[in-house]
């Protein structure tokens, strides 16, 4: 059927004036559509050889290289992704650590502040108490010393008065009676 078709096409081509004229010039009719069996056989042999050689030595290695490269790229991408994930996890961990450290530091600071505060108030209180105590003791000492001094002064005064009076009165007065008088006077001073 193909030969019939090709013959029809070939006939129509030959019928065109151009080709007919050229056929004359070439010294015979030219049929572009009649395949020569020899050339067909050559084509088949050459194509088969090219196919076998190229499939084995060209396309195989190229495809294999490309597949390897694709696999390597895939692996590189996967490892990069894993690295990135690990880095992100590490970062998060570090962030959490820093956060915790910051919190701890804050706690230490506030604790220190509280301790210092309490220590200060304690110190202040104890100082005040000590001061008060010292004051109190000083007051008491003063009071005691005052009483003692008063007594001393009183005794001294008595002695002085007695000495003075005895000197004055020695000549004219009975000693015992005078003493009584003076004592009663001193008592009156004491009560005053």
């Amino acid at each position: 059927m193909r030969s019939l078709l090709s013959r029809v096409v070939a006939l129509s081509l030959i019928a065109t004036p151009l080709l007919a004229q050229e056929g004359e010039a070439a010294g015979g009719s030219v049929n572009l559509l009649s395949p020569s069996t020899g050339l067909m056989a050559w084509t088949l042999i050459i194509f088969a050889i090219v196919f076998v050689v190229l499939a084995k030595f060209a396309f195989g290695p190229i495809t294999a290289a490309v597949r390897d490269r694709e696999a390597a790229l895939e692996a590189a991408i996967a490892s990069a992704k894993a690295d990135q994930e690990a880095a992100a996890a590490l970062l998060a961990q570090h962030k959490a650590l820093i956060e915790a450290a910051k919190g701890e530091a804050q706690k230490f600071i506030s604790e220190g502040r509280a301790t210092a505060e309490s220590m200060r108030t304690e110190l202040l209180e104890s100082t005040k108490k000590q001061q008060d105590e010292m004051l109190e003791r000083a007051r008491r000492d003063i009071e005691a010393e005052k009483g003692k001094a008063i007594d001393e002064i009183r005794r001294e005064a008595i002695d002085l008065a007695l000495a003075g009076a005895s000197k004055v009165i020695e000549k004219n007065l009975d000693d015992a009676q005078n003493r009584k008088l003076v004592e009663s006077y001193l008592a009156s001073i004491g009560t005053r």
Binding site: I46, I49, V50, V53, L54, F57, A58, F59, G60, P61, I62, A65, V66, D68, R69
Partner: peptide, 19 residues
């Protein structure tokens, strides 16, 4: 055929060498 075979096999060798 010769050109295709030479061109593509040498290209394949180049690809393999770089690969």
């Amino acid at each position: 055929a010769t050109l295709v075979i030479v061109a593509l096999t040498s290209a394949a060798r180049g690809v393999a060498k770089r690969a």
